[in-house]
Simulated assay, not measured.
Amino acid sequence: MSFAEYLRQNGSDVLEALKIHVQLSSLSILIAVLIAIPTGIILTRHDRAAKAVLAVAGIIQTIPGLVMLGMGLMLFGLGSKPAVIVLVAYAILPIIQNTYTGIKEIDILYIEAARGIGMSQSQILFKVEIPLGLPAIVAGIRLSVVYIISWATLAALIGAGGLGDLIWTGLSSYDTNMILAGAIPASILSIIAGLVIDLIHRAVTPKPMRIKGDA
Score class of each variant (00 low, 15 high):
residue 2 S to R: 08
residue 4 A to Y: 12
residue 8 R to H: 02
residue 8 R to S: 11
residue 10 N to Y: 15
residue 15 L to T: 06
residue 15 L to H: 01
residue 18 L to C: 09
residue 20 I to N: 06
residue 20 I to R: 11
residue 21 H to R: 11
residue 22 V to I: 15
residue 24 L to K: 03
residue 24 L to Q: 00
residue 25 S to Y: 01
residue 29 I to W: 03
residue 29 I to F: 12
residue 29 I to L: 07
residue 30 L to R: 13
residue 32 A to G: 14
residue 36 A to T: 14
residue 36 A to C: 09
residue 43 L to W: 02
residue 48 R to C: 09
residue 50 A to K: 09
residue 54 L to I: 11
residue 55 A to N: 10
residue 58 G to C: 09
residue 59 I to C: 10
residue 64 P to R: 10
residue 66 L to I: 15
residue 66 L to V: 15
residue 68 M to E: 09
residue 70 G to Q: 13
residue 74 M to N: 08
residue 75 L to W: 12
residue 78 L to C: 03
residue 80 S to V: 14
residue 80 S to M: 11
residue 87 L to E: 01
residue 88 V to S: 03
residue 88 V to H: 03
residue 89 A to I: 15
residue 89 A to G: 10
residue 94 P to L: 02
residue 96 I to Q: 00
residue 98 N to T: 04
residue 103 I to L: 04
residue 105 E to R: 03
residue 107 D to A: 04
residue 108 I to L: 09
residue 118 G to H: 07
residue 119 M to Y: 13
residue 123 Q to M: 12
residue 126 F to Y: 14
residue 128 V to I: 13
residue 128 V to C: 05
residue 133 G to N: 00
residue 133 G to C: 00
residue 135 P to I: 00
residue 135 P to F: 00
residue 138 V to R: 06
residue 138 V to A: 09
residue 139 A to Q: 07
residue 141 I to V: 11
residue 144 S to P: 06
residue 146 V to D: 02
residue 146 V to W: 05
residue 151 W to M: 10
residue 156 A to V: 13
residue 157 L to N: 07
residue 158 I to P: 00
residue 172 S to M: 00
residue 174 Y to A: 12
residue 182 G to H: 01
residue 183 A to F: 09
residue 183 A to G: 14
residue 183 A to M: 09
residue 184 I to W: 04
residue 185 P to F: 03
residue 187 S to I: 10
residue 188 I to D: 01
residue 191 I to V: 12
residue 192 I to V: 08
residue 195 L to M: 08
residue 195 L to Y: 11
residue 199 L to T: 12
residue 201 H to A: 13
residue 202 R to W: 09
residue 205 T to A: 05
residue 209 M to G: 01
residue 209 M to K: 14
residue 209 M to T: 08
residue 210 R to K: 06
residue 212 K to H: 07
residue 212 K to I: 05
residue 214 D to I: 09
residue 215 A to N: 11
